[in-house]
């Protein structure tokens, strides 16, 4: 590291020379890293969006219960307050019969005419309870033990499936991100190893002149870092355009899907891509160099033997 600042200009110039000497190979490396980062970013975006959608839906998880008709107003109020104290209950709201009727009118729209055939309001008052989806079993079991509650409409199967889906998306997403991350790391290490191989004569000469390994490695580490940062930035641009196109396709015809705000999503992904590409660039460079370095001495000896 002590040579780094003194030679920063030289190292950057060397990176330029290494890139210039193998333009096609480096261009292909840039294209492949940017595509890998693009795939990684799209995977993470998909994971992020589906996670967000599931969380929003889970946040809306609710069950309804009907109480005995003979309960007085005070008793109903007391019941609602009691339910509010149950662990896993977020809110409990009394929906009276008129409001239940109006809600159904909203849901049915033009078909609400059918309700006019009833002489009286066919709906009963009920209590709408928003719950933490992870506590569904405990909440239902507590509510079932309250004698004033006559009937619970819990959609338990749907809610449990929703909960499982959320867990599954998290696990699959994590698996895919890790798999693409590892693939990117291996590919970058290979690209750096290829760079080392392309410059093996220069590296061997520097070794014979007594250059420390850190000095020899620095241009390759910087090459890996710069190639990956450039790949990450290209991927960020491609991801932004792809997400804007995706949002315009989804939000028009499917406005009810609760997508996360696009600006926050793009900002987060760009930041993550820069951090990821920089870290993976350095890690991949080290990995590639360690692999090449093990064979370094053998290469020097073989090179000398060939001259013999």
């Amino acid at each position: 590291m002590k040579y780094f600042f003194k030679n920063i200009g030289y190292f950057l110039k060397e990176v330029g020379t290494i890139l210039r000497l193998n333009p096609l190979s480096n261009l292909l490396s840039l294209v492949s890293t940017s595509l890998m980062f693009f795939i990684l970013a799209m995977m993470i975006a998909g994971w992020w969006i589906s996670n967000d959608v599931v969380e929003v839906i889970q946040g809306e998880a609710e069950i309804n219960f009907y109480y005995h008709e003979d309960l007085q107003d005070e008793e109903i109020e007391e019941l609602v307050n009691r339910v509010m104290t149950v662990d896993g209950v977020e809110t409990a709201l009394l929906i009276n019969a008129d409001e239940a009727y109006n809600r159904m009118v909203d849901i049915l729209g033009k078909d609400a005419e059918v309700l006019k055939h009833f002489d009286d309001n066919p709906f009963n008052s009920f209590v709408e309870v928003k719950i933490d989806i992870h506590e569904i079993d405990a909440v239902i079991s507590t509510l079932e033990s309250i004698p004033e509650i006559e009937n619970i409409r819990d959609n338990r199967e749907i809610l449990i499936r929703l909960r499982e889906m959320g867990g599954l998306i998290k696990r699959i997403g994590l698996l895919v991100v890790v798999a693409v991350g590892v693939a990117t790391l291996v590919a970058i290490a290979h690209i750096i190893r290829q760079g080392v191989y392309n410059n093996k004569e220069e590296i061997n000469t520097l070794r014979l002149l007594g250059a420390p390994e850190g000095f020899i490695a620095m241009p390759f580490i910087l090459e890996g870092l710069l190639l990956n940062l450039a790949g990450g930035l290209l991927a960020a641009v491609m991801t932004s355009f792809a997400l804007m196109a995706l949002y315009s396709q989804i939000q028009g015809p499917l406005p009810f899907i609760p997508m996360p705000p696009i600006n926050g999503l793009i900002k987060g992904l760009v930041l993550m891509l820069i951090l990821f590409s920089g870290t993976l660039g350095i890690a991949g460079s080290f990995l590639g160099l360690i692999n090449s370095s093990k064979k370094g001495k053998i290469k020097v000896i073989k090179a000398m033997e060939q001259k013999k």
Binding site: R20, N204, T205, R207, L208, L209, G210, K307
Partner: peptide, 20 residues
């Protein structure tokens, strides 16, 4: 590596670095 910095090797094939 330290010893090599005190040497001045002249190789039969010169080992000059191309592109520089």
């Amino acid at each position: 590596q330290k010893i090599r910095t005190m040497m001045g090797p002249i190789f039969q094939d010169f080992r000059l670095i191309k592109g520089r």
